[in-house]
Computed example of a mutant assay.
Amino acid sequence: MLKQLTQLKIALDESSIVAVTDQKGRIQYVNDKFCEISKYSRAELIGRDHRIVNSGYHGKEFFHELWETILSGRVWRGELRNRAKDGSLYWVYTTIVPFLNKDGEPYQFLAIRNEVTPLKNAEAELKRMMTRVMHIQEEERKRISRELHDGIGQSLFGLAIQLDRLLAEPGHAPELANIRQDLSSLMQDVRGLAWELRPSVLDDLGVAPALRSYTELFTQHYGIQVRFSCKLSARFDRRIETALYRIVQEALTNIGKYAKVLEARVEVWESDGFIHVCIEDEGVGFAPLPERQGVGLFSMEERARGVGGTAQVDSAPGQGTVVTADLPKRLLTT
C-alpha cells in the first residue's frame, strides 16, 4: 500500500503542479513543478499563502466563492491566472480537494494544477481575430451599402426619370409602363439590400434611430409588432453602436423565423458605464444546448465580447426567449 502511494505521488509530481495547505491556506508542501512555474524556491513558498502568486486578475467575489466551496467540504474546480516571481503571468486549471477530519471539517487542502497558458493565449488570439473579422465585415458592408445607394441606386433613379419623361409623351409604347413598374420594384429591392447590409442612418444619426427604423421594417416584413423602448442620452463609439444594432437585429430575426408570435419587446437603456438591451418574446422557446449552439447565438456573444461586453440567451420550450446584453459605454484600450 505504501509503495502504491509512493508511486502515485511520483506520477502526480511528474504530471501536475501540486500544493498542500492547512485550513487557513498556508502552504505546507509544493512539488518541483510548482517552484518551476512560479519561479519561487520552496523555502520562499512554505508558510506563505497563495496570495504570493495572486495576479490581481480575479476579484474578491471569485475567491469568496472558492473559499466558500472548499470550506463546506466540496471540491472546487476552475481556471486561475497567477503571477510568477519574475512578473510573468500563467494560467492553471485547478482542482482543490478538501481533506476532512472526523467531524467533517476541512483541516487540509490538496491543490492539483495543470498549466493551460498556451490554450488561454490561443483563446485570446482567436477572440482578437474574431473581433478583427467582424470589423472588416462591417467595413465591407458599409462600403457595398454605400455603392448600392450612391452608385446603382442613383443610376436607377436617373433611369426612372428618363422613363417618366417618355411616359409623359403622347403615343409612347405601352410596354414602358410595365418597365417603369419593374424598375420601381428593382429600386425598392436595391434600397432594401443596402439597408440590410448597413443602414446609413446608423452612421449618420446613431443607433437609436437605426433601431427604431429597423423595428418598423421588421414589423412590415414579419407582421410581428415590436414594442420598442430606447432610453439613450448620447451617441457612443461606432463599434459599440454597431454591436448593439447587430445583436438586436439577430435576436429579432430569430424571433421572426422561429418564435411564432405576434408581438416582441425590445428595451434599450443605460446605467453608469454600461448600455443594456433586452429582446424578449413569449413564443415557442427552445432548450439551449451548448453543443448545438447556433451561428446566431455565437454571433451575438462574439459581438458583445468584441467590445468588452457580454450577451446571453435564456429560453425553455413553451416559455419564450429572452436575449440580454450588457455593453460598456466606452471601449477599453489594451
Rank of each mutant, 00 (worst) to 15 (best):
I255E: 07
Y40H: 11
M134H: 10
L156N: 10
V97A: 04
V133I: 09
R212E: 15
R141D: 12
C278E: 09
R113H: 09
R303G: 09
R51N: 15
S15N: 11
Y222I: 03
A243G: 06
C35Y: 07
F109W: 04
I46P: 14
K127C: 00
I279N: 03
R191Y: 11
G25N: 10
E115P: 02
V248C: 11
S38F: 08
Q4M: 04
E139Y: 05
Y93D: 11
E115I: 00
E115G: 01
S15L: 15
L110G: 03
L126M: 04
P288V: 08
F298L: 09
G318T: 02
I179M: 11
V284M: 12
E147F: 13
G309V: 04
W269S: 13
R165M: 14
E196S: 09
R212Y: 08
R143T: 12
I152K: 10
D189Y: 06
E175R: 12
F274K: 13
W269M: 05
L176M: 10
L148S: 08
K120E: 00
D13W: 07
G192R: 12
R212F: 05
D86M: 03
D32V: 12
E270K: 03
K33S: 13
H135Q: 15
R81H: 04
K39I: 01
L110F: 07
N82Y: 00
D272P: 02
L66E: 11
